[in-house]
């Protein structure tokens, strides 16, 4: 009987096991639904954004064909020259409370709060994904190398991440935005380069534990290259750490972006949640409650959902932790 057959009949993989444990938990499922909902919202926001902006977007020669395809798909020429819904202003209908035409009311320029909230979730997801794409590869690469090789390589990497860990994140991001200018690029780079330390540390420790295990020894004896051993043998076994870390760092990246935009060094002209809260707070007590309420609820929902799911994932994916609890 091959291992594959055995698996089918008797056991489940770690991930399948985790999935079933999450499915049993109502709270985790609810979190998942919220996250999927926000993901779809962000996707919808992205489509809207590019539909109105793709024609004027400047793209390098290489990406021209792609641009043409996207233009076609989004039917961008139909809305050429029109104002995107989240930017449409109507001063006669400002400060409108929620109604059928504006489900979440309008702001002080008569712009639809719902449409701006959608764009805000687009930005939030953009920040979460892009910063993860920067931070996770750095953390994984450095953590694996440090843990696997040890010695002076380890010393250098530990020194490097200790140095990064010493820097106050917010100040680091502010200084980056001073250099490359305010805007989302600065936020991506700032968050991306400051949040890899925690994951790197975890992975280093995990790799150190595993490098002396028999399957690694066996691979070494077989003469496989270090890269193959690290990335084909060890990494798949510690993947769950990365997944857990991802689900927990995502909401904190969103929070950081909101704070930075609130402070005026994040998003500049795009409707970020931080900017929306910053302008809405001045009118809250004049009775304009809808802007602040819906924006805050959106942030609360997504951050809470990610955190709950992250916890559930950790319970499901980290068996040792589970044993301790039981």
């Amino acid at each position: 009987m091959s291992i594959e057959d055995n698996k089918k009949k008797h056991g489940k993989t770690l991930y399948a096991d985790a999935w079933s444990s999450i499915r049993r938990d109502k709270l985790s499922m609810a979190s998942l639904v919220v996250i999927v909902f926000f993901m779809l919202t962000a996707l919808y926001g992205t489509c809207i954004y590019w539909r109105y902006n793709i024609i004027d977007a400047e793209s390098p020669q290489m990406l021209k064909p792609l641009k043409v395809v996207v233009e076609k798909v989004l039917m961008a020429d139909r809305v050429k020259g029109q104002v995107a819904p989240y930017q449409r202003q109507d001063l006669d209908n400002r400060y409108m409370s929620p109604s059928v035409s504006h489900v979440m009311g309008t702001d002080s320029l008569g712009r639809d709060v719902f449409q701006r909230l959608v764009q805000g979730s687009r930005i939030a997801f953009q920040v979460g994904v892009i910063t993860s794409l920067i931070a996770i590869p750095i953390a994984v690469l450095l953590g694996c190398i440090a843990g696997y090789f040890g010695g002076w390589v380890d010393d250098v990497i530990v020194w490097l991440y200790s140095t990064f860990a010493c820097m106050p994140t917010l100040l680091f991001i502010i200084s980056i935005s001073m250099v490359i200018g305010k805007g989302l690029t600065g936020v991506y780079i700032g968050i991306g380069f400051t949040t890899w330390v925690h994951l790197c540390r975890l992975i280093r420790g995990e790799v150190m534990k595993r490098k002396d295990q028999t399957y690694v020894r066996a691979a070494q004896v077989l003469g496989y290259s270090h890269a193959r051993i690290i990335f084909r043998h060890i990494l798949p076994n510690i993947m769950h750490i990365i997944i857990i870390n991802f689900s927990l760092r995502f909401p904190s990246a969103i929070q950081t972006e909101v704070i930075l935009s609130f402070l005026g060094i994040g998003a500049q002209s795009e409707p970020s949640w931080g900017l929306m809260i910053n302008s809405a707070r001045f009118r809250l007590w004049y009775g304009v409650w809808w802007e602040l309420t819906f924006t805050t609820l959106a942030i609360l929902a997504i951050v809470l959902a990610f955190n709950l799911l992250g916890d559930a994932l950790r319970d499901a994916l980290d068996p040792r932790l589970r044993e301790v609890e039981r």
Binding site: Q89, L109, G264, S269, S279
Partner: peptide
């Protein structure tokens, strides 16, 4: 300055120029 009022005013002003097809970007 970068206070919300300035931002709103500039959002409004850029909508004026968008009417004739000119994009106005703000640097706060």
């Amino acid at each position: 300055s970068a206070d919300p009022q300035t931002r709103e005013a500039i959002d409004l002003m850029s909508s004026f120029f968008r009417e004739i097809g000119v994009l106005l970007e703000a640097s706060y």
